[in-house]
Design a protein around this nucleic acid. Sequence first.
DNA 1: GTCTATAGAAAGATAGAC
DNA 2: GTCTATCTTTCTATAGAC
Lengths: 202, 202
Amino acid sequence: MARKTGSHAQITGPRVRSAAQKLFARMGYAAVSMRRIAAEVGMQAGALYLYTPDKQTLLFDLMKTHLEELLQAWAAAEKGKGAMAQLEAFVRFHIRFHLARPDAVFIAYMELRNLTPENFERIESLRRAYENQLEAILRQGQESGDFRVPDTKLATLAIIAMLTGVNTWYREGGRLSRSRVESIYWDMVRKAVGGDDAARIA
Amino acid sequence: MARKTGSHAQITGPRVRSAAQKLFARMGYAAVSMRRIAAEVGMQAGALYLYTPDKQTLLFDLMKTHLEELLQAWAAAEKGKGAMAQLEAFVRFHIRFHLARPDAVFIAYMELRNLTPENFERIESLRRAYENQLEAILRQGQESGDFRVPDTKLATLAIIAMLTGVNTWYREGGRLSRSRVESIYWDMVRKAVGGDDAARIA
DNA sequence: GTCTATAGAAAGATAGAC
DNA sequence: GTCTATCTTTCTATAGAC
């Protein structure tokens, strides 16, 4: 189909970012050339520079957008009142949100080392803000007596690693539905932060 | 210091692999050039091809060696008899082994997509063999009544993701010693697979 | 066993035509 | 807004001197 030479700025920009996201996730930032991204969109490499100053900014924008959407979505989520209800909401939210965006998640975790130091700091700060959301819930539950974890910070990191790990194996149409996966992980998390008496470790 | 032009094959090979491992972990496989590896060792790029047929094989050998050593070390580890003792042994072993080899671990998880399809299959098969070790323990404990997990396979994946996550934040000389970290994670894992009655989910 | 030199391909980014 | 053409650099891998 012949390509019209009219104004497509409003649609081409998102298409460039979408193509870059798909390719970065599949092949890795360093292995993807600007020519390859252009080909995916159906344009020439030179024209990409109308939509991004350079390749690095393309990567940074993808990661920044992903993390900002993550924080916004959690802020808008139904959470319930007690620490227990909030933790369940967090577990289910995290799995659901991350499974819906496998490419963005993959990039956010795998391409940190390809950011310039300045960009890395900005992304890290967003990531820590998200971590703090979970840590606050765990701290609250610890104080209310709902939870009994040996170390709040480590529990935060352990839970996030465990939940994000779902993305590495979950496949649509597999043995388990998303909501079943949510329930199974919630069961394990709930028990892990729970008040088993043998939990008092030295 | 002047470089002698004698026979160094037995020492240069390991130095090449060591330099590649360090650089792949730090910058990513695709971002590291053969020139950069050669410079790290103190030789010319052309000479690298005496020790590896190509860059891909260098990556594959690093990952294969890492996973074979992992399987061997676990096979040789003290495990105890019951499922509970074996699970504790696995948790502590996994954290200890992985914290001792951050570069190899990082590469094994981040560079899978840079393997050729054939090499990928061989690496995946080793990784699954390790996963099966943990799954067998969980299944045994499930049958003996020591554990009560809603899904053995998911518990396997969740625990491994959680434990491997330690590598992303642990820093030598930080707030917690390695053995303290082991104990904290063992506490969470033990509870997560435990027999909390509310664990019976639909 | 390591070097220099280089072939051949491909990269990021820019200039200027249309 | 997109194209073609190109500058400059860098890449993997090989050839052949020593």
